[in-house]
Computed example of a mutant assay.
Amino acid sequence: MKEIKIESTLYVFESLGELPKEVLFLMEKAVEAREKAYAPYSNFHVGAAILLDNGEVVLGSNQENASYPSGLCAERTAIFYAGSQFPKAKIVRMAITAGSKKSKTTKPIPPCGACRQSIAEYETKQDAPIEIYFMGEIGKIVKSNSLSNLLPLGFDKSVL
């Protein structure tokens, strides 16, 4: 038997004030998107903002449905829109913010598993990493230089 050790490197910013200006702008756009979430069941609002290499910024917010599996997360709303409207553009970075309407969310909230898989698809498609920044409503912000830090041993087209 052989042991395989998997390590990921993430970076933590203590507050929005520590972010580079271009990342702060993107996170502010994610906050705007979060305010447009439709989440009457969970009361958990998520916003995502994506910067493309052509300079476009694409926003997404979670959209719930009474038939829960029919809803869509903010990250996938944004990434699928980017893919459909700008199919040749590469995704440079993504900012994500999440918060509950029931209590203040201070812990950084990473993308769910389905969103990680969807982001991985685009990272593979463009053959370039996607920087991902995520936070709650307030507090620390976590940065990953690539989705592969959040989803090691990912499933992609190479196994098909």
Rank of each mutant, 00 (worst) to 15 (best):
K2Y: 14
E3F: 11
E3W: 00
I6G: 03
S8P: 00
S15C: 05
L16T: 14
L19Y: 05
P20N: 12
K21P: 10
E22T: 09
E22C: 06
L24H: 05
L26E: 02
M27K: 09
V31N: 04
V31L: 04
V31D: 12
A33S: 06
R34V: 00
E35T: 01
E35Y: 01
Y38C: 08
Y41N: 06
Y41L: 13
S42V: 00
N43M: 12
F44N: 09
F44K: 01
H45A: 13
H45D: 02
H45E: 14
H45Y: 14
G47F: 10
A48C: 12
I50L: 11
I50G: 03
L51S: 09
L51H: 03
L52A: 09
D53F: 04
D53M: 10
D53Y: 11
N54T: 13
N54D: 06
G55Q: 03
L59F: 04
G60A: 03
S61T: 10
N62H: 04
N65L: 00
N65E: 06
S67P: 00
Y68M: 13
P69C: 09
S70G: 00
S70H: 12
C73T: 13
C73R: 07
A74I: 05
A74T: 05
A74N: 09
T77H: 15
A78H: 07
A78P: 02
A78Q: 02
I79L: 13
Y81H: 07
A82W: 08
P87T: 05
A89H: 07
A89E: 02
I91E: 02
I91S: 08
M94R: 03
A95V: 04
A95I: 10
I96P: 03
K102L: 13
K102C: 00
T106S: 09
T106D: 15
K107I: 11
P108N: 03
P108Y: 13
P110D: 03
P110R: 10
P111E: 09
G113W: 05
C115Y: 14
Q117I: 02
S118Y: 01
I119Q: 11
E121C: 14
T124K: 14
T124E: 15
K125D: 13
D127K: 15
D127L: 08
A128S: 15
I130M: 04
Y133N: 02
M135H: 01
M135C: 08
K140H: 05
I141Q: 00
K143R: 14
N145G: 10
N145S: 12
S148M: 12
N149F: 04
L151R: 10
L151V: 10
L151Q: 11
G154I: 02
G154D: 11
D156S: 13
D156A: 01
K157Y: 10
S158G: 01
V159T: 06
V159Q: 12
